[in-house]
């Protein structure tokens, strides 16, 4: 096991940010920490990196107990949401920073032969990394002359330069616009397939997690709600929270179901179908969203394609029967559903 978090508790004053938190993150995998704002994702990541200290519990990285180690000794690459660039250094110098420290700590005099050898090696490695993140032509620019996406790629190269055992990213694309974000997460996935470093990234965007991660850890209120592959989480959510956080949900017959997992028809075909009337029809692109008012006063949201809606003959005011499709992910609705997403 690559990263092993055992019984971590972290308090800020009276507030418990992480509560006896346990998780195992396997080597070479891309894991997403997913959860709502304030859930404790950043706190967990910072504790793994050694930037914060836990009040109790232990962290081990690649089998080495890291609980007492300072950030400098953990061999962890960290990428921050707001890039944390070294403003006064060029892109190449930013990337070289960790390598230079490891090589000579800046203490060897410039004329020493060893230092010249180090310099050549570092220059070569920096060139490789800039190639990897597609920033070769910007090597001599200052960070202020880069776009946000380019800055974050630079920060990623800087973290990868020292060949860390694990790479931790705290909402790396959070400050970027939707399009760049989508491009970068696909790129991160490809990069991970190339370099295979154990990677953990924080996000509160479920689409990002579902699309990129090998495994997702859903965190809420300082606790793990569920751990699993994206498919597993989507198809077999452990509870109403996970179900609600990973996509839209609606409630039919005392159960939580995804709106596209409801079978709608104008005749009562199946036993146990719920009767109702279509109160509203909304067309968004290829999809139709129907709001159905059931006889027991529930408001059910149903999603279907335009062609399907036409085949069924949906119109406002008609009577319909609803059933969750067989094999759909359902979760019993609790009396008071926790807020999600």
């Amino acid at each position: 096991m690559s990263i092993e978090v055992r019984g971590i508790t972290k308090r800020f004053g009276d507030f418990v940010a992480l509560d006896d938190f346990n998780v195992l993150l396997p080597s070479g995998q891309l894991t997403a920490l997913l959860g709502p704002s304030g859930g404790g994702k950043s706190t967990l990541l910072r504790i793994i990196a050694g930037l914060d200290r836990a009040d109790a519990g232990s962290v081990s990285i690649e089998g080495v107990d890291a609980t007492g180690l300072p950030a400098q000794k953990r061999d962890v690459g960290f990428v921050f949401q707001h890039y944390a660039v070294f403003k006064h250094l060029t892109v190449a110098k930013n990337v070289a920073f960790g390598l230079e420290i490891r090589a000579h700590g800046g203490l060897r005099p410039p004329w020493a032969a060893q230092r010249r050898a180090d310099r050549a090696r570092i220059d070569r490695r920096v060139a490789e990394l800039l190639e990897l993140v597609h920033l070769s032509q910007f090597a001599d620019r200052l960070p202020s002359q880069l776009s946000g996406g380019q800055r974050q790629r630079m920060a990623l190269a800087r973290a990868l330069a020292v060949e860390p055992k694990v790479l931790l990213l705290d909402e790396p694309f959070g400050a970027l616009d939707a399009k760049v974000r989508k491009e970068l997460r696909e790129w991160l996935r490809r990069l991970h397939d190339e370099v295979h470093v154990t990677t953990v990234f924080v996000t509160h965007d479920q689409e990002e997690a579902l699309e990129v991660a090998d495994e997702i850890v859903v965190i809420n209120d300082g606790r793990v709600e569920q751990i699993g592959t994206p498919d597993r989480l989507y198809d077999e959510p452990a509870n109403d929270f996970v179900m609600g956080f990973l996509g839209d949900v609606t409630r039919v017959n005392g159960q939580l179901v995804r709106p596209h997992d409801i079978d709608i028809s104008r005749v009562p075909l199946l036993a146990g179908a719920v009767e109702g009337t279509v109160a509203r029809l909304l067309r968004v692109g290829f999809e139709v969203r129907a709001t159905v008012l059931t006889d027991d006063g529930e408001e059910v949201l149903v999603q279907l394609t335009r062609t399907h809606a036409r085949a069924v003959g949906l119109e406002e005011g008609v009577t319909v029967w609803l059933t969750p499709v067989t094999g759909a992910a359902t979760v019993p609705a609790l009396p008071s559903m926790r807020s999600a997403g």
């Binding site: 990196a49 050694g50 930037l51 300072p70 950030a71 400098q72 000794k73 953990r74 962890v76 690459g77 960290f78 921050f80 707001h82 944390a84 660039v85 070294f86 403003k87 920073f97 960790g98 420290i101 490891r102 700590g105 800046g106 920060a155 800087r158 973290a159 330069a161 020292v162």
Partner: peptide, 18 residues
């Protein structure tokens, strides 16, 4: 000055003095 810049340097292995 953003504290995360110092944290980034620390996680790259830089000591306080550096």
């Amino acid at each position: 000055l953003e504290v995360d810049v110092e944290e980034a340097a620390a996680s790259l292995g830089a000591r306080r003095g550096t």
